[in-house]
């Protein structure tokens, strides 16, 4: 008897749950929903509300802090994002694993504002899957009150004068990349000997390094805790806006140009909405607000033209053609990543 009652309750519970989930699904159909997955603090969030109003769509906005977090979430399935913002090397990986939908450029007319130099790159030669969102370089952020020379070379990060005043990035590809550029090798090398050489260089440098940092590096530079830091241009722009004594330089040996793209994961439900959203973000006035909010450089030429003169002609934020030609993009390394990891572990365990 008792059991019967229990069973009855269970059935009731199941019915309630089913009814509840049906009602949720019903809600979803009234107003199309666009699921956006972006880096933290990487958009002026007011823009989302304006998009909702103009297109009568609901935007669900989530954030991640590394490419790898995003990749794992998309790869493991179960998420339903319509627009994501991978970096270029992650784009390669996702394309190799057939994880992205094709985009229809006809439905994104504003793509005409985008910088030719960042279109049709090796990652996506015909821009069939992605459009650039924001971009930048790898360089050296330094404190002009503590460093009185002009920074022109990566060598300064190996200068004994700055013992315990140097911040390196706790990021394998960037720190090893700086050593590879200094040695005159490609930042995408698969050559184990070249990597070992770069590893040796980083081990020699270790006594000079104050710390290997990621996000907290810019705060340490702003507070004057260190003199020099290997960093990305966008982070540098933020730090400079907080402390006027700081400056950013791209060494003459070359740099790494990186960019983040907009793309659509395979199986996205709201393709039309995703196209509209990408087009919206490429409107010059919207792109302008994003670059001003985030601090990273915009690939949108029309938006750049609207920036204040000292920003738009700032060779730190918008490097010359020459610097860009001298630069290399990161390419997804596949299995060779293991060699990088090994070198990095050796450096850090040294």
């Amino acid at each position: 008897m008792v059991k019967m009652v229990r069973k009855g309750k269970l059935v009731l519970l199941v019915l309630v749950l089913v009814a509840f989930s049906l009602s949720l699904a019903g809600c979803g159909q009234e107003k199309p929903t666009l699921y956006v997955y972006n880096w933290g603090d990487y958009i002026d969030e007011d823009i989302l509300g304006e998009f909702e109003k103009e297109f009568g769509m609901k935007v669900v906005y989530d954030t991640y802090s590394t490419n790898e977090d995003m990749y794992v979430k998309i790869k493991s399935g179960g998420s339903n994002y319509d627009v994501i913002f991978p970096s270029e090397y992650m784009l390669t990986r996702m394309l190799q694993e057939d994880m992205l939908e094709k985009i229809d450029l006809n439905k994104i007319p504003n793509h005409k504002h985008l910088d030719e130099r960042l279109m049709g790159t090796v990652y996506d030669p015909k821009n069939e899957y992605s459009l650039p969102y924001l971009w930048g370089t790898l360089g050296i952020l330094y404190n002009t009150t503590l460093v009185d020379e002009e920074i022109t070379s990566w060598d300064v990060l190996w200068d004994d004068k700055y013992r315990k005043q140097i911040l390196m990035l706790d990021s394998q590809r960037d720190s090893i990349g700086a050593a590879l550029i200094k040695l005159g090798y490609s930042v995408n090398t698969h050559d184990v000997d070249q990597l070992a050489e770069a590893g040796e260089l980083l081990k020699q440098q270790k006594p000079l390094v104050l710390a290997y940092v990621v996000d907290e590096g810019k705060d340490k530079m702003v507070s004057g805790e260190a003199s020099l830091a290997l960093t990305w241009s966008g982070e540098a722009m933020y730090a400079i806006s907080e402390n006027e004594d700081l400056a950013y330089a791209i060494p003459e040996e070359g740099t790494n140009v990186w960019f983040d793209v907009m793309a659509i994961p395979k199986g996205a439900k709201n393709l039309e909405g995703a196209f509209k959203f990408m087009d919206f973000l490429n409107r010059p006035e919207i792109a302008l607000r994003n670059t001003e909010y985030v601090g990273y450089s915009t690939p949108n030429v029309a938006a750049r033209a609207m920036l204040p003169e000292e920003v738009r002609n700032d060779t730190q934020a918008y490097p010359s053609d020459e610097d860009i030609e001298n630069a290399e993009f990161f390419v997804h390394l596949g299995d060779a990543l293991r060699h990088y990891d090994r070198v990095w572990t050796e450096v850090k365990a040294h």
Partner: peptide
């Protein structure tokens, strides 16, 4: 300051990086 790789860092690195 990331200079002392511990076993936890090593595991994190394998999965995320």
């Amino acid at each position: 300051g990331g200079q002392f790789t511990l076993i936890g860092n090593l595991i994190e690195q394998q999965f995320l990086v």
